[in-house]
Structure formats: structure tokens, C-alpha cells
């Protein structure tokens, strides 16, 4: 196991399986944990239904209201930039699209590599900005836990190793690619046990939020 190729194959083979298994077990456990808790019946006379407002909120909450945008513009913009950047790199980079196709058989068109490259660079900068913000903003300082920094590190390393691998700045390449895959696997592994779960649960949370407000006649 000393060689770079063996390392790459380990990350592409057994380690990927392990990571995926832990991720899937963890995530589904987490979802089961949530849904099985259920909600108590609500006897109050509703003003409106829950489903539609809930679904609306799933989408509308993506955009900050003007007041919040004004008060936390840096936070919002930087968050937006790196989330979108991350998603573009994750879903629209050719090798990633092929990975998804290979795993699930679903394919979609990808972006030209230079575009993804630029987006990735911006994402990295935005991620650094989020860290600086977390370290300097009083609220974020106060509420941040070790987990926040751990998660930041993993996410940053996933993007950074991907960037380094793409530009072949680490040699030999199997090490670079292997590191990237390994970081992504670590991300997958910690995902269900950290705030990264929000990738999935935020849609549930938003729905509950929209449903609760919607029931009372407020579009949240």
C-alpha cells in the first residue's frame, strides 16, 4: 500500500464503498430519526393548507429577504457564492457527471472545464472568506463549535484537492486524485453526523417552516 496508484485504487474501491455505506446508513438513519418522531395533531382551524406553502418555502427561503440581505450582505453573498460554486463543480464538472452516471445511470450535460475551473477558484476564495467571517464576526465566533471548523476544513479540502488535482499541481497524479476522492469520502462519512446533513434536511426544515406559517396564512 505504499504506492500512489494503490492509494488511488483504494480510494476508488474499498474506501469508496465504506464511505458510501456509512453515508447511506447515516443519512437514512438521520432521516428515519426525523420522520419517525412525527408531529402532534393540530386541531386549530387552519387559514390555508400546509403542502403548497411548505413547498414554496423550500424554494423561496433560498433567497434572503431584502432586510436581512442588507444587514448580512457579506454573509449571504459569500454563502451563496460558495454554495452555487460547490454545486456547479459537483454536478457540472465532466468527471463528476460521469461519476453520477456511472453510479446512478442518470446523465446531464456538463460545463466546459475552464468555466468549472473559474467557478472552483471563486468557490475557494469564498470559502476562505466564510472562514474569516466565522473567525471575526462576534455572533459566529460565539456559536461556532469544533464541528463547524472541522466541517469547513473538510469542505475546503474537498474543493482544494479537486482544484489541485485538476491543475495537476500535486504529483504523482494518482496521489492528487486519491486525496480528492478521499476528502470527498471523508465528507460523505461525516455528512450524516454533522451539520452537513442540512444538504438534505434543510428541505425538510423549510417545508415544516413554510407549512407552519402557511397554515396561519403567512407565506414564510
Amino acid at each position: 500500500m505504499s504506492g500512489s496508484m494503490e492509494f488511488l485504487l483504494w480510494t476508488k474501491g474499498p474506501m469508496f464503498d465504506i464511505a458510501l455505506a456509512i453515508f447511506a446508513i447515516g443519512l437514512f438513519a438521520r432521516l428515519a430519526e426525523i420522520f419517525l418522531l412525527g408531529r402532534k395533531p393540530n386541531y386549530a382551524e387552519p387559514r390555508a393548507g400546509e403542502w403548497l406553502p411548505g413547498l414554496r418555502t423550500v424554494f423561496t427561503r433560498t433567497i434572503a429577504d431584502p432586510g436581512t440581505f442588507q444587514r448580512a450582505s457579506f454573509n449571504v453573498v459569500v454563502g451563496w457564492v460558495w454554495h452555487i460554486g460547490f454545486l456547479i463543480a459537483l454536478l457540472l464538472f465532466v468527471p463528476h457527471a460521469e461519476l453520477i452516471k456511472g453510479l446512478f445511470g442518470i446523465a446531464w450535460p456538463a460545463l466546459p472545464n475552464p468555466v468549472v475551473d473559474l467557478v472552483t477558484a471563486i468557490t475557494l476564495i469564498a470559502l476562505v472568506a466564510t472562514l474569516v467571517h466565522r473567525l471575526t464576526h462576534p455572533v459566529k465566533q460565539r456559536i461556532s463549535t469544533i464541528e463547524d471548523y472541522l466541517v469547513w476544513t473538510v469542505v475546503f479540502l474537498v474543493v482544494l484537492t479537486g482544484y489541485l488535482a485538476y491543475h495537476r499541481l500535486v504529483n504523482p497524479y494518482p496521489v492528487a486524485l486519491g486525496m480528492h476522492i478521499l476528502m470527498a469520502e471523508i465528507l460523505l462519512i461525516i455528512l450524516p453526523f454533522t451539520k452537513l446533513t442540512h444538504i438534505f434536511t434543510t428541505f425538510i426544515a423549510r417545508w415544516y417552516n413554510g407549512a407552519a406559517f402557511g397554515r396561519k396564512g403567512v407565506q414564510s
Binding site: 455505506a21 453515508f23 447511506a24 446508513i25 437514512f28 438513519a29 428515519a32
Partner: peptide, 14 residues
């Protein structure tokens, strides 16, 4: 793996 996770998580939650 997902199904297993749902069972494990489900059991724990139940």
C-alpha cells in the same frame, strides 16, 4: 446501505 440505515435509524428512533 440506505435501507440498512433507515432500519438502524428507525429502530433507534422507535
Amino acid at each position: 446501505a440506505g435501507a440498512l440505515g433507515a432500519v438502524v435509524g428507525g429502530a433507534a428512533t422507535v
